[in-house]
């Protein structure tokens, strides 16, 4: 059957199996490896994509049910070939170690900041609670998000 979606701004129609998830569609069918697979039950957050602007676990979405909705993966953030300023903040603040959680962290953060542009550290922590990281202990991730928020406000 056919799954319809708008992937990183481009309308796509892709042949899928009824039991195929959005994660499997992205990784196995389309070879989009910026979405990771970590737990297959929506807990870890490494397969996060934005669906109509909101974060979802792509492992818990059936591809067949997409109905033309907008899906954004990490590569959807690219700005004229350069890094998105949040990506730059992650690099500069040492928020990346093994990097496996990073794509999901970035997408979750951006969706959150759309709705709450000036969060404090506690709010940032609460917003990222669904994205596990086993390497950094989160401090530098929160540092990076905070720095990005400050930069947007012209204080950085």
């Amino acid at each position: 059957m056919i799954a319809r979606l708008v992937l990183n701004g481009r309308p796509r129609e892709v042949e899928v199996r009824p039991n195929q998830t959005l994660l499997e569609l992205l990784r196995d069918t389309l070879g989009i490896f910026d979405v990771k697979e970590g737990c297959d039950e929506g807990v870890c957050g490494v397969c996060t994509v934005l669906l109509d602007g909101r974060p979802v676990s792509s492992c818990l979405v059936l591809a067949a049910g997409l109905r033309g909705r907008a899906v954004v993966t990490l590569r959807g953030l690219e700005r004229n070939g350069g890094l998105h300023p949040l990506q730059e903040a992650f690099v500069r603040h040492g928020a990346v170690q093994c990097g496996f959680c990073t794509p999901g962290m970035l997408l979750t953060t951006l969706a959150f900041l759309e709705r709450e542009p000036r969060p404090d550290r506690e709010a940032i922590r609460a917003a990222l609670e669904g994205n596990l990281c086993r390497c950094t202990g989160y401090t530098k991730i929160v540092d990076a998000v905070e720095a990005y928020v400050r930069g947007e406000l012209g204080h950085d």
Binding site: G42, G45, L51, V56, L60
Partner: peptide
């Protein structure tokens, strides 16, 4: 409830 992704869907 759950995490932010659960609350989306």
């Amino acid at each position: 409830i759950g995490n932010v992704r659960v609350r989306t869907l």
